[in-house]
Each structure stands twice: as structure tokens, then as C-alpha cells.
Simulated assay, not measured.
Amino acid sequence: MKAKTIRMMSAMALAITASASFGQTVHYTAGQSTFGARCAVCHQAGGKGQDGLAPPLTRYPGRYAATPDGRQQLTATVLNGMYGEIAVQDKTYNFKMPSFASLSDEELAEVLNYVVFDLNSKHGNAKPFTAAELKAARDRKLDASAVHASRAVLTKSLGL
């Protein structure tokens, strides 16, 4: 087998094992696989985060995805990265998230859907992300510090 196939199969097995240990029903398995291979190294299995480094993804993304500005924030974050100190649920993180713009629009949409719908129990009336939405977001180029600044405005407007 090719090394890439072996890595992908290992990531899928890890993701399936992680979801089973959390008792989680997974609707976006492709997103879970990509999350396991690309995001879990910092955000950990199940999106629980790492104190001081990477914030948990189990609460805020669900709230973000229910608003147009929040959806724009999520797409900007995965496409452009983000760095700087942030607070999530009274904990502080100083994280430098890389850009994942090298992933396809479909892969990014699946990852965001996994995070919003499988890791977040509350996501209001959010609709699933589409590849077309990610493709359109690629036209709004921001640097990581601008993504950080827009997050601050968004969290304040959502009362987070």
C-alpha cells in the first residue's frame, strides 16, 4: 500500500476509536477522518482542546455556524489560519493555527460539518457547510491576525 493510504487508514481508525470512546454519533465521517489526521494533533480527539495551546471545539463553533458572520469566521479560520491569545469558556489559549487552504473545498466543508454537527450538541438552525461556500470564502483573503481580530468582534456580538 502507498504510505498516504496507510496514513489515511490509520487516521480513520483513530477517529473511529475516538468517537466510540466518546459515545458520539458521527454523521460526517469524511470530516472526522480529516479532523483526526490534521486537527486532532492540537485540538485532540473529540475536539476537547489542550490547555494553554488549542481551544476546545465543542461549544463555540456550533454557535458560530448559526450566524452569517460566524460562518464567515469559521471558513476564514480554516482557510487563513489564526494566531493570538483567545479566551474560550474562561480559559486562555495562545495558539497559532495554520492555514488549511491546501485542502479541497469538499474536505474543508466536511471538517467544518464534523466540528459543528458532530462535536457540538447545540448548533441552532445552522445549515451544513458546502464546497461552494468554501470556494467563495477563498476570495476573501485575510491574514491570520485579521482572522483573530474578526473573531474578537464576533465573540463579543454573540455574548461569548
Rank of each mutant, 00 (worst) to 15 (best):
L158F: 04
A20S: 09
D139T: 10
A11K: 06
L158W: 09
C42D: 08
S99F: 02
N80S: 14
L14Q: 13
G124R: 09
F100Q: 09
S145F: 14
R71T: 06
G36A: 09
F35I: 04
R71M: 05
S19I: 03
I86G: 06
A3V: 12
Y83M: 11
A131G: 04
C39E: 05
K122W: 09
Q72W: 00
Q32M: 14
P128A: 08
Y64M: 13
T58C: 05
L142M: 14
D90R: 15
G84R: 07
A136V: 11
K91A: 15
L142R: 12
A101H: 15
V41C: 02
G23S: 13
E107K: 04
A54K: 02
L57F: 01
F95Y: 14
V88H: 10
T34R: 07
R151M: 12
A13Y: 02
A18L: 05
F129G: 00
A20I: 09
P55H: 08
I6Q: 15
P128S: 11
E110R: 03
R38L: 10
Q73K: 02
Q89L: 13
G47S: 12
A45I: 12
S10R: 12
A137T: 03
K4A: 15
A126Y: 11
F35H: 09
D90L: 14
P61K: 02
K4V: 15
L14K: 12
Y60G: 01
G23D: 11
G47R: 03
P128M: 06
A40M: 07
I6Y: 10
Q32C: 07
A76F: 04
K96G: 03
I16T: 07
Q50E: 12
T17E: 09
A136F: 06
L112T: 00
G84N: 09
H43G: 00
Q50V: 10
A149Y: 06
G159P: 06
C42E: 04
T155V: 15
Q24T: 11
A65V: 08
F22M: 10
Y28L: 01
G36H: 00
R7I: 07
A87K: 12
S33L: 07
E133C: 00
C42T: 05
T25S: 13
S33N: 13
A54P: 01
R140H: 13
H27Y: 09
A20G: 11
A152R: 08
I6E: 13
G52T: 09
S10E: 15
A40R: 05
T29M: 14
Q72Y: 00
Q32E: 12
Y64F: 10
L112C: 04
M1D: 14
A20F: 02
A146H: 11
V78K: 01
A15F: 01
V115F: 02
N94K: 11
K48F: 06
M12V: 10
R140E: 13
